[in-house]
Design a protein around this nucleic acid. Sequence first.
DNA 1: CATCATAATGACAACGCTGTCATTTTACTC
DNA 2: GAGTAAAATGACAGCGTTGTCATTATGATG
Lengths: 340, 340
Amino acid sequence: MSATIKSVAEYAGVSIKTVSRVINNEGTVKPDTLAKVQQAIDALDYRPNKAARDLAGRDNYVLGYVYDNPNAYYILAMQNGILKECRANGYELLIHPCDATNPDIINELVNMVNSARLAGLILSPPLSEMPDVLQAMDDKGIQYVRVLSGDKAPDDKPCVLVDDYQAARQITGHLLDQGHQRIAFIAGEKQHHSTTERQRGFYQALADHGIQADPKLVIDGTYSFGTGVQSIQQLLALPEPPTALFACNDEIAAGALFGARMQGVDVPEALAIAGFENSPFSTQTFPPLTTASQPTAQIAQRATSSLIRSLQARKRKAENHTIPADIFVPELIVRESTSR
Amino acid sequence: MSATIKSVAEYAGVSIKTVSRVINNEGTVKPDTLAKVQQAIDALDYRPNKAARDLAGRDNYVLGYVYDNPNAYYILAMQNGILKECRANGYELLIHPCDATNPDIINELVNMVNSARLAGLILSPPLSEMPDVLQAMDDKGIQYVRVLSGDKAPDDKPCVLVDDYQAARQITGHLLDQGHQRIAFIAGEKQHHSTTERQRGFYQALADHGIQADPKLVIDGTYSFGTGVQSIQQLLALPEPPTALFACNDEIAAGALFGARMQGVDVPEALAIAGFENSPFSTQTFPPLTTASQPTAQIAQRATSSLIRSLQARKRKAENHTIPADIFVPELIVRESTSR
DNA sequence: CATCATAATGACAACGCTGTCATTTTACTC
DNA sequence: GAGTAAAATGACAGCGTTGTCATTATGATG
């Protein structure tokens, strides 16, 4: 049916092992031999048989995506990005939903990696932010790449950073630019780095403009619609209510918008509201929400590519092949919820 | 490292081929031999090596899930159900997002199935409702299972049915039981069978109660928040506005709820609203929405199981092995948006 | 130009399973 | 209980690749 390594070898007039070397980028093939083989591969439209590689080789060409996150849109975008990169590199993807609060999560992951003989893992928050999970992976020698909230890599293991701090600073800056002085902040779960980073950006932006944050305007909550509804009631009841709100994500913002409207407060006239994430929620409110958008699929793709490169480097025993961490800054999207 | 077929065979005192027969359910193994082998498998915690199976066998143990649907929650729930069943049967899952409006979609699918040597495909709406796609799969001899809206199987190929008709009848019945006489209906895209089935159920419920539907209360739209907002304005502007609304999904219902509130119409006091799908939207509104819930993950699991059984049957040349279609009726969930 | 180190290539077994076909066991018949 | 068909089991090759190790080509050195 389709071409095999043998047919390519015959076509190119070399041994199958040489073809194997070419397709694995082993780098010990003479340039003209390599060209011949490449040409044969192209001519025959040869694609290595994954099953045979997995069986013969030490490693499996399978990556794992482990996630636990209530946000379906995020997961699906991540997944699409990962899939794209996997496909481009002949890897396959094993998808493993799990529960990060499960006390046995570490065993679960280690077992999964072993039994499916995974080459590496892609971890997104909150898994990527759990030190004991990462420690266990390191101990077991399991390769992984993390997608993390932050503006600098915490260590030299592969990771891709999402600079929530910078983006939050921009959003807050946008509100300040509109002339707002009393800006409220509603936080999500404090365990998520994204929350603390966004809050840090919020404070920094205020400081940049020489404004001292009013602690009464900062409310802790969860990433939920309900938090938005409750918090905005509390905020609007203050003697000096805020004129603008930066909610830690769109869901909170949507809740706050709803709550404000219910109390007869016009948005954006009496209260400007900004969210974060650019989730479908953000366009399904009236008015649509100002927010920050991260290119999740692209982030996932880059993370996967990092992992694959680091896997290949390790295979060739190239030590110290640290890949610099990519940083993505979510982009401000201004919509009507913050217009003057 | 981990157990192989050889170690299981030695442990059980049989040949590797017999073990192979057991793990493939070939059914030609004596009961007591089978028991011995099963015990060995359990004792050694043996899991067949997929790469070896794929390489040695004619078929690949890989199923494909092809989807095109904007609803991330639905996709993810489907995916989880499929994954669960795949894992239980030693299959792997290849996930393939695609665009159903792409004119070249058929080629894309056929190529994918061939190049990844997929054993079978799981199709959810809208793909599962496109006759030319199904025709092409039949022509190419590609096995598939469909998840479909309907109350009876359109043919004898494997499918799992979601009885939107019955559920819509129940929802409408619930509104009628509350004493409503003028009930509006907002439809989604007419290409989706789910829309027409739900509409059919709506009409039937009215007929059951001897009520003739008022065409002015039935509005065509899309599965979107915006449709809900616009349609409700139109409905409330009628000389005789409805006292209840059945929206084709939760997103439309949420839009309608929003629109009604904006016009000062109280829900549920002045207008009862019901949605469909039990999406996260339905609990993130005030008041939360009455809706119908389908066990998507379970549906997906059943569909996958059907596909696998039909695959194994075909392998054993057992013709006429038609598996009766499962039917799931989404369950009515009553929340405050329709309370008296 | 002989010598040696090193780079480039090749021969071949092995990975864990399934398909084919041969062999053994079982069940049934007269 | 011999004979036969059918059911159950086994022996062995082969799937397409990589790892190991052997072999050959290349280049550097004195």
